[in-house]
């Protein structure tokens, strides 16, 4: 009997293993075909010269040197970083302020305010880019230029000037994502016990001291999370500038990003080797940015700990 039950138990275990592998297999099969294979093939392609039709030819590191010696690539990297910083860094400050207010018990219509601030996030990036594209068009009568003139400033060529395009795109990134970050900070604030603030108030701390010594330190993991998301997202910026610039998206360089550079190489210039080399370089940049992010944030923690001891 004992023997029999043991065997049955074991076959049950084997069955469970088979079930488990079966259940996770759809992801891995699809990943192998449409995730891993293309990623590896991209790295392979980065060392080939290929126009998409003819024979591939191994060219060593030539694609990388072509890309890295192309001033347009460096311009697009510069644009990506500048627009990334201008579009996402202010979100941290404004997002924390908004979340701090939304978390106040005295605030009436809290859910309505929260919904209104979050609403831009559900509009698609294409829609945002088109609406802001009209708002920031080059005409003197465009709403953005009209507003500038009201304040006695000159009109800006938003779509064709170096800083005009970058500022317009950063504003639309900010507008669409501020609600998302606010909601994450709000979740962080709600995880801080109210008793902390009560104790601080009894000790005579004012609002700014509460913000400085309770809110910001305890919110740090959430800030790190949003900085990480924003960095990776900003390095992949494509839709907003492409749609905003419309017909001139791939012929002008004021707002060209790294992904646009990649797309242009591959799908408008049929140079798939250099396109793939750009993709590999982008991967490297994202990995480096993530490592630097992690290093900086863990470094801050260590330093603080050291000081406290």
């Amino acid at each position: 009997m004992g023997f029999k039950r043991g065997r049955k138990y074991r076959s049950e275990e084997t069955k469970d293993k088979i079930s488990a592998y079966l259940y996770i297999s759809p992801f891995f099969i699809i990943f192998a075909i449409i995730g891993l294979y293309p990623a590896v093939f991209s790295i392979f392609l980065a060392f080939q010269d290929w126009n998409g039709l003819g024979e591939m030819e191994f060219v060593g590191l030539q694609n990388f040197s072509v890309v890295l010696q192309d001033p347009v690539f460096w311009k697009s990297l510069y644009n990506t970083i500048i627009m990334g910083i201008m579009g996402t860094a202010p979100q941290i400050i404004v997002g924390i302020i908004l979340a701090f207010i939304l978390n106040q018990a005295f605030l009436k219509f809290r859910n309505a305010f929260r919904a209104m601030i979050f609403l831009p996030y559900i509009t698609s990036m294409v829609a945002v880019a088109l609406v802001f594209g009209v708002f920031f068009s080059n005409n003197d009568t465009a709403l953005a230029n009209y507003t500038l003139q009201l304040f006695g400033m000159d009109s800006v060529n938003w779509k064709t000037s170096e800083w005009g395009a970058k500022i317009a795109i950063s504003i639309m990134v900010f507008w669409r994502w501020i609600g998302y970050n606010t909601i994450i900070y709000l979740a962080g604030l709600q995880s801080i016990p109210r008793t902390f603030y009560e104790a601080a108030r009894i000790d005579g701390a004012n609002v700014f001291q509460q913000l400085r010594y309770i809110t910001i330190p305890l919110l740090k993991p959430f800030i790190i999370l949003t900085v990480f998301f924003s960095t990776v997202g900003a390095l992949q910026l494509f839709t907003e500038p492409t749609v905003f610039l419309g017909s001139s998206a791939f012929s002008r360089t004021e707002a060209m990003t790294v992904v646009m550079y990649l797309y242009r190489d591959a799908f408008t210039l049929q140079s798939f080797g250099t396109g793939s080399a750009t993709a590999v370089i982008l991967l490297a940049i994202i990995v480096i940015a993530s490592v630097v992010n992690t290093y900086l944030t863990s470094g801050v923690k260590k330093r603080k700990k050291g000081r406290r001891i």
Binding site: I34, G35, A39
Partner: peptide, 14 residues
């Protein structure tokens, strides 16, 4: 962690 753009070109041909 893999950026979706890395595989874009081969995915297109696939």
């Amino acid at each position: 962690v893999i950026p979706p753009q890395l595989g874009l070109i081969p995915q297109y041909f696939l």
